[in-house]
Structure formats: C-alpha cells, structure tokens
Amino acid sequence: MADTTKRLIRFTPIQRLWHLGLIFIFILMTVTGFAWMYVETHWGQTLASWFGGIKETVEIHKIAGLVLLAGFVLHILYALCRVDWSKFPGSLYSPDLLMMGIRDFGKMIQHMGWTIGLCKAPRFERWAWWEKFDYWAVWWGFTITGITGLMLYNPVLTSDYMPGWMLNLALWIHRIEAVLAIGHVFTIHFLMAHMRPGTVPFNGAMFDGTITMSEARHDHPEWVARLEKNGELEAMSVPEPSVPLRVLYFGVGYIIMAFAVTLLAFAVINITAVTLL
C-alpha cells in the first residue's frame, strides 16, 4: 500500500465502542442536566418537555447516571485487564497504555514552549500528553460527579450516613464539575480532536479506528519508529475505510457536535437567568 492510502490502527473496536457509548450517554446527561439547571428559563423548560416534563427528565438523568457509572466500572475492569501484571509496575508505563509519567509532563512543558516559539516540538509516542490528559480527565470527572451524583440519587438515604447539609456541598460540586466537563468537551476536546490541521474537518480515528500514515508520522513519530523497528508496521496497516462508513460517521459526528455546541451556546446565553448561580 502507498503511504498516502495506508492507515494505521489506533483504536480497537472495544475502545471505539466505549467512546461511542460515552458520546450518547454524555449528551443525554448534558441535556437532562441542563434542563434541570435551567428549569426556570424557557429554554430549560423546552429541554425538559422533550422528556415529558421536569420530573421525568430528572429521573432519566439519574438512570443515565447509573448506566454511566456502571460503564465506568466496566471500563476500569477493562483497563486493569490491559495491564501486563507479570511485568508490573513497569508495564504500567508501556507506550501503548495511557498512564501519565514524568516524561509526559516534560513533553507537556516542551509542547507549551513550542506553541509560543521557545523550543522544538516534542516527538510523541502513541499518545500525546493532551490525549492522556483527556482520558484521565474523564476518570476525574466521573469520580467527582459519580460520588456526588450517588449522594443526590436518594438524599434521604444519604442523610442517614452523613449530615443532611453535606447534600448542599454535593449539589454545588456536582454542578460545577459537570459544567467543567461539558465546557471542556464541547470546546477544548472538539478543537483539539477535530480542528487541528492534520484532522480538520473531522477526525474519524475514534470511529473507524485508524489514522493516515502521514498523520501518524507527523504527530506520533516515535510510535511509527517503534513499530518499524519491531517490524510491526505492516501488520498494523489497513486500507481506507469504506466511503459509506465515512459518510455515516462524518454526518452523525457533525450533527452531534453541532447539537452539543448549540447546547453550550444556549447555556451561556441563559446563564444570567439562573437564580441559583
């Protein structure tokens, strides 16, 4: 295969499935969460009306949260299975895994320096530092919103184990962390994943599981060098995905992104109408 048409496998089907599930559940959580947060506005009431009213919306938010947490627990088990325990703990820092190490912090500083012209760009292995950051941010976000969300799931039961006023804290922490997650995903993540020169107008890596060889050589030169050195490059190379598949994920992807950005825009426009902020 020519270098221009060759693609490198980047994500396994199960990893793509995690991401796809996450997209749908995260959007559902965002819509139902915003409906509750903005219920005193016309926009919030419109969102709630999609689910039959605010009571139903909150119930769906709670159930979706449980599904999300169950998925998170399954993902933790999956991640643990990916570790080579016979070579633990060194295997945690395998370049194919997403564990952040000291080197990643070094590359982060170097990369920030490069953006303002102070030094050369770092050469990334399979994962750039911001990709690892994005991954762990999900753990961080789910842990915080998950714990506080579970506290709020049944407040009467929760208050049997802690003072009721801890629910005041849970509400605020849940709210701020959720807004942080939404804001981060709908701006920084979308820009970094889809708007960089090598990926614009749409990065399909998470949907077909591959990236072009030229993009791999440009963004992850150490990864390609390792595969070449180990003689694994050809085995990891696949042809381009079919056009119908690309059209499908391009279309669905852009509909979801446009919807998400619109949600964020409405949230910003209506923010002053929310009394509790």
């Binding site: 804290l169 605020w172 922490i173 942080l180 981060h184 701006t187 920084i188 020169p197």
Partner: peptide, 28 residues
C-alpha cells in the same frame, strides 16, 4: 468547597483555552 471547585474549573479554562488557540495558530 465552591471556591475550590471554581478555581479548579476556571484554572482548566484559563490555561487550556488559550493554549488550544495558540496550538492551532502555531500548527496552521
């Protein structure tokens, strides 16, 4: 708790939004 969370959330945007913008400009 609220101040901590706001500083955390604000810090993420204050650092990463300009960084993302600069990165895109630099790469283009």
């Amino acid at each position: 708790a609220v101040w901590f969370m706001l500083i955390l959330a604000g810090g993420v945007f204050v650092i990463f939004l300009p960084y993302t913008g600069l990165l895109l400009i630099r790469e283009y």
